[in-house]
């Protein structure tokens, strides 16, 4: 699970949960691998993100690195910034661990990089 994916996942489908966002991360294995850098892609993705959630997620698994706490102005033209964002969004992956619902505490296992968001019949 890349942190870009984490930025969109919620537990809102659980009965009794309103927003279910952001999900907490408990990472057991984290993998960092190189992914081709596409500055146009990154700069277009940034406005769609919740940056705060991204930063906290990265920080919680020890990978915030040099990522600024806020999006800088004119980020589209700042290669250095885009590269840092690219690294956190695309190159860091949680392989095994858990996602945790902020409202109910329900845990969703992540195994082999795949978050299991399946719910039981009585949970919806």
């Amino acid at each position: 699970m890349k942190l870009l994916t984490h930025n969109m996942l919620t537990s809102k489908c659980l009965k009794g949960v309103n927003v279910g966002y952001p999900l907490g991360i408990l990472a057991k294995d984290v993998k960092v691998s190189e992914v081709d850098f596409n500055p146009e892609f990154v700069s277009r993705i940034i406005p769609k993100l919740d940056w705060n959630v991204l930063w906290n997620a990265a920080d919680s698994i020890g990978h915030s690195g040099e990522l600024p706490k806020a999006v800088i102005s004119d980020y589209e033209n700042n290669q250095e910034f885009l590269k840092k964002a690219h690294h956190v969004l695309m190159e860091v992956e949680v392989i095994n661990g858990e996602l945790i619902c902020p409202e109910s505490g329900r845990k969703f296992p992540i195994s082999d990089g795949i978050p299991n968001m399946l719910l039981n019949e009585d949970e919806v």
């Binding site: 919620t10 489908c13 966002y21 795949i114 978050p115 719910l119």
Partner: peptide, 25 residues
């Protein structure tokens, strides 16, 4: 889970869920 892991092994971002309850923002 079986099909999702095939997609995942090909390097794509997937999660398991039912289409009646899509857990996205």
């Amino acid at each position: 889970i079986g099909l999702a892991s095939v997609a995942n092994k090909r390097g794509f971002q997937v999660f398991t869920s039912n289409c009646l309850h899509i857990p996205l923002k």
